[in-house]
Simulated scan of single mutants.
Amino acid sequence: MKIIACGSVPTVIAPEKYFTGRVLQTPIIEKEPPARLRATLVSFEPGARTHWHTHPLGQTLYVTAGAGMVQTWDGPIQEIRTGDVISFAPGEKHWHGAAPKSAMTHIAMQEALDGVHADWLEEVTAAQYSG
């Protein structure tokens, strides 16, 4: 058994090369191989969002607070709220983030394939974000 004490893992500001707006990330767990799980608490200020990206083994989000939005490359923007679970298929191009006037926090869970958890792509434009 391993206990990771609250406050022992620092919260960081998410890198601008993968996010638009202010986003904070607090690591929950990153398992050592052969396990592949990574889970992170991600907090988006209003209007903040990821860039387009994919995950080789898919991704699951659990919204813990607020209201946000998600979109797949070929789909419409969909609203998400506290308690929602969102599941992206392996390789499914998507983005997620806060609503324009509401912060949103979720737990992001994904597994690595050959050490890769995500493939980051282009920025979500203001026009794409506003629908």
Rank of each mutant, 00 (worst) to 15 (best):
L61R: 03
H94L: 07
S43I: 00
A118P: 02
T11H: 02
W52S: 08
I107L: 10
G66Y: 04
G66V: 12
W120F: 06
I86T: 10
E45N: 00
S130I: 08
P90L: 07
G66H: 01
I107S: 09
G115W: 09
E123H: 07
W120K: 05
L57W: 11
G7S: 14
A98P: 01
Q25K: 14
G47C: 03
R22T: 03
T105Y: 06
E122Y: 06
P90R: 10
G91C: 01
L24K: 15
V63R: 05
I80D: 03
H94F: 13
P90S: 05
V116D: 05
T20K: 04
M69W: 11
G47P: 11
S8P: 08
A89C: 04
I86A: 03
V85W: 07
H117E: 04
T105G: 05
S87E: 13
I13G: 01
M1L: 10
E111V: 02
D114T: 04
G21D: 01
E92V: 09
A99T: 01
T60L: 08
M69F: 04
A89F: 04
L61H: 10
I80Y: 02
I80N: 02
P33Y: 07
G7E: 09
T105R: 06
G97M: 02
A112E: 07
H53L: 07
V42W: 01
I80F: 03
